[in-house]
Each structure stands twice: as C-alpha cells, then as structure tokens.
C-alpha cells in the first residue's frame, strides 16, 4: 500500500503518570501479600519438598520415579486427555446456551437464568457429587426410567466408570462455561453481525471471520479456567470413577494422606502443574493463530507503527481531518 504517511499514531495506550503510584501500591499490596503468603511460598516449599530427600539432600529421584513408571505416565496422560475432553465438551455445550441467553432471552428472564446457572457454585461440591451418585446409581431414578423403557437391565449403571467421572466434571464446568461465554456473546455487537450479513457473508463465514475472532479471547479464558480446575480434580474420580476412572489428582491425594512418600506426591503434582500449563499454552497459541489467520488482514503487522522520519521538530500531527 502506498502510505507515505508522516502522521504519527497518537492512539496508543495512555502513559502512566507517577502521581497515583502510591495509590496503586496501596491497592495492590493486600493482594500481593496474600499471593506471596498462600501461593508463592507454598509453591517454593513444594519445589523444595520435591527435590529434597529424607536425608536433606538435593535429589531428582522423585521425578525419575515418576518418569520411569508407566503407570503414572499413563495416569498423567489420561488425566490431561480427560480434562481436555471435559473442557471442550463444556465449551461446546455452554456456547450455544450462552449465545441464546445473550441474544434471544428477555433481560428479566436472563437474570433469573444466570442465577440458576450459578446454583452449583454455591452448593457444596461433595453434595453435588453425592447427588449425582444417587441420580445415576443402579436403582436410582435414571436407572429406573431406562429399565422401564427396557433399554438397560436393573443393575446396569455408569457409576464407578470413567463416564460417571467425565459427566460429573462436565456438569461442574458448565457454570463457568455459560458465564464466561455469555460475556463473550455480549461483546459481539449485534449490528456487527448484521453488517457482515449485509456485506454478503453467509452464516458460516460470519462465524469463522467475525464471531470466532471476537470470541476467541474469552474461549481461551474459559479453556484455562476449566482445564486447570479439572486437571486437579480428586473428589470426583475418587467417589464416582471406580477402578478405571482414577485421575492423577486423587492418586496424589491418596499418596499424601497415606503419608508414605510426600516427595513423590509433590513430584507428581509438579509434573501435572507443568504439563497442564503447557497444554494451556499450546491451546492459547493455537487459538490466537486461528484468530489471526481468519482475520486475514494486515492487522497483526500493525504492532510496529511507522517511525517518524525526523525527531519531532514539528508538533505531533494528529489524524484529525475533521476536528
């Protein structure tokens, strides 16, 4: 493009002034103190526990143990895969619901529905898990109905299988998905969608080129929140999962409560932490890549504004043709 533009961009982020620095520190301090005391220091302690053995020597034997054991690696793989599936399914189910809620439901009713969505949040997690257990166990309401319809035998149930665990985790992930994707749906202005249609874009093109790029940041937020939370699940697999539905979380929990080998349990946790962060990182990169690819234009090259040719001798020109 021929742009011999001597105009300097003036739109950028406003410069921070030194004045409210004190106020900023004051506002941030409580949060920082909490984070240091209850997140950072425990993490340091964890790392130390993981790398130090009974005789107070530095060691990597705990990690060596993790990586040499097929059982634990398989468990890690299953945990990551299951969490990934749970997150994707929750997003796939939550998105249409959130979209409908933001677009096609009257505001008054919308508040009520959002309130209902939040209920699982304010209910004890164990209560939810045992409620789910009663629901799906043999002889429970679902089993009863399916038996009456001759679809299953009276003693069949998905309880104590990976499926029970999977469904429970999806169920628990739904409120986050609906809430986060609701705000994504709200951030896509209806007139922008209409504009796309009047410009000749078919529904599919509107989705890939407008809705997806505009929603992608919130989808990443949703993915991160749900995935990280699900990866650490331990009560669900312990109660519902049965022998084949175990996850790394409840294995770690068992290891720690049995008191046999804290160092090994910590090594497992750290491996889980790092690998799940890796998954989040890869997914984030992937999503922003598709977003850029679909946007198509030279937007991504905008980050480096053309440098003014001379040091500002002339006062900064603005682009205001019309002011």
């Amino acid at each position: 493009m021929t742009a011999p533009s001597p105009l300097r961009r003036v739109g950028g982020s406003p410069r921070r002034s030194a004045g409210p620095a004190l106020a900023r520190t004051g506002l941030l301090a409580p949060g920082i103190v909490l984070l240091v005391l209850f997140a950072f220091l425990p993490l340091v302690a964890l790392v130390i526990t993981g790398f130090v053995n009974d005789r107070s020597q530095l060691t990597t034997e705990n990690f060596a143990h993790v990586f040499s054991s097929g059982t634990y690696l398989r468990l890690l793989g299953r945990t990551l895969l299951l969490s990934f599936a749970v997150t994707v399914v929750a997003i796939a189910l939550g998105w249409p619901a959130a979209w409908a809620l933001a677009r096609h439901v009257k505001p008054a009713r919308r508040t009520m529905i959002l309130g209902l969505v939040i209920i699982p949040y304010i209910t004890s997690q164990l209560l939810l898990i045992y409620g789910f257990l009663t629901l799906i166990q043999a002889g429970g309401p679902i089993s009863y109905v399916l038996t009456q319809l001759h679809l299953t035998g009276p003693q069949d149930s998905i309880l104590y299988t990976p499926w029970a665990n999977f469904l429970m985790l999806v169920y628990e992930s739904m409120p986050t998905a609906v809430l986060v994707l609701y705000s994504a749906a709200e951030s896509v202005s209806p007139s922008v969608l209409e504009a796309a249609r009047t410009l000749g874009a078919r529904p599919r093109y509107v989705f890939t080129h407008v809705i997806w790029p505009l929603s992608a940041p919130m989808v990443v937020v949703n993915f991160t929140l749900t995935f990280v939370q699900t990866v650490g699940a331990f009560a669900e697999p312990a109660v519902l999962g049965g022998p084949d539905g175990q996850m790394l979380g409840n294995t770690i929990s068992t290891q720690i409560s049995s008191g046999a080998n804290d160092g090994f349990a910590v090594a497992l946790s750290l491996v889980l932490l790092v690998t799940s962060l890796l998954v989040v990182g890869v997914v984030t990169a992937l999503v922003s890549w598709t977003k850029r690819a679909q946007s198509g234009g030279p937007t991504n090259r905008l980050t480096a504004p053309p440098r003014p040719r001379t040091r500002a001798r002339t006062p900064e020109l603005t682009v205001a043709r019309e002011s």
Binding site: L199, G200, A201, R202, G297, L302
Partner: peptide, 29 residues
C-alpha cells in the same frame, strides 16, 4: 437473506469489525 440482496448498509453506530484493520474492514464484503 440479507447476504443475497446486493445491498450496502451503513449503521448508526458504524458497526465496523473491531478486530480488523480499516483496509480489511472495507475488503470484507
């Protein structure tokens, strides 16, 4: 449907695509 009417529509609130550059906005159709 709108996309088959061969119309140009300009909205009160501009309705530009916020994630696209000006040039890509114009090229969208």
């Amino acid at each position: 449907p709108s996309e088959k009417r061969r119309i140009g529509f300009v909205f009160q609130n501009y309705a530009l695509f916020p994630h696209l550059s000006v040039g890509t906005n114009v090229a969208f159709g």
